[in-house]
């Protein structure tokens, strides 16, 4: 079954590559606008060993990881605080719902004024974008902790802090991790958008901009985009893998029930 899934998946990808190749080679689409898939893949292969591009990727990853880490460090404790103090929870709800839908990229102009370096701008915007999914997931996860589990520990005389630490947090952790994973993919969009708009010294977004200088090289642009997609894919898969290992009890239990 698993083998079949892999084969079908690979066939789907290969099919798309062939279609793109044919569409471009036969002139159905202008091949400067959409270069043949083989060219794009060849350029992507070259980029993998291109020192300058690797520096760009490093800079993007650094801002991405830094901003994400910062938002985790703030959003999780904040979510725990808001989620466990009913007054704060109610008071903050409207604010959270108001701030959450503001697209981070809309704040790029503000960030360029507020922060002097592009690295700071990137991290601040990632922080803002990631704060909400993590905060909201933490809030909901804490709200949904099984009351029987909490009562079980309470019945042995444990107080509220102990129940929070030993029951609420462990049982909320898988949902918080899902929030972090969602935030990670949002962060990638934000970091590249910021690099495209705000510039700076290094970054994948910068590289993408540069491919358009002097005539424009769409094959290089698409090759870079392929790598940006690969980064997102690897980050997502890595986080899923970590969740599987850390929260084996959760998947095993839900499979047992089903």
């Amino acid at each position: 079954m698993r083998f079949r899934r892999i084969v079908y998946g690979a066939a789907g990808v290969a099919g798309l590559v062939v279609v793109l190749e044919v569409v471009s080679r036969t002139g159905l689409v202008d091949d400067t606008a959409l270069p043949p898939a083989s060219t794009v893949l060849r350029e992507a292969g070259r980029l993998a060993v291109d020192q300058d591009f690797l520096v760009d990727v490093g800079a993007t990853l650094k801002a991405w990881a830094g901003g994400l880490l910062l938002s985790v460090l703030v959003a999780v404790p904040l979510g725990v605080l808001l989620g466990s103090v009913p007054v704060l929870n109610t008071a903050s709800r409207a604010l959270v719902e108001l701030c959450r839908p503001i697209p981070s990229v809309a704040l790029i102009p503000l960030a360029t004024i507020a922060f002097s370096t592009v690295v700071q701008q990137k991290m601040a915007l990632i922080f803002y974008a990631c704060l909400w999914p993590i905060l909201v997931n933490t809030l909901y996860a804490l709200r949904d902790v099984d009351p029987v589990a909490k009562e079980s520990l309470r019945s042995f005389g444990f107080g509220t802090p102990a129940v929070l630490w030993r029951v609420s947090l462990p049982s909320a952790a898988p949902f918080i991790a899902t929030g972090v994973r969602i935030a990670a993919s949002v962060a990638l969009i934000v970091v590249i958008s910021t690099e495209l708009v705000a510039g700076g010294d290094d970054g994948v977004g910068l590289y993408l901009n540069e491919t358009q200088a002097g005539g424009g090289r769409n094959d290089l642009l698409l090759a870079g985009a392929c790598w940006a997609g690969a980064l997102g894919l690897v980050a997502n898969a890595g986080l899923i893998w970590l969740e599987r290992i850390a929260f084996r009890w959760q998947s095993a239990r839900s499979e047992g029930v089903a």
């Binding site: 029987v148 589990a149 009562e151 079980s152 005389g157 029951v167 049982s171 239990r253």
Partner: peptide, 27 residues
């Protein structure tokens, strides 16, 4: 202080992230 409760719903009362031994030892 010296009271314990056994609930009907063991699957919700035991902590799935702890081993059986750690569940018993926690209190």
């Amino acid at each position: 202080d010296d009271l314990a409760v056994v609930f009907q719903d063991y699957s919700r009362s035991l902590f799935p992230w702890l081993t059986v031994r750690d569940n018993v030892a926690l209190p």
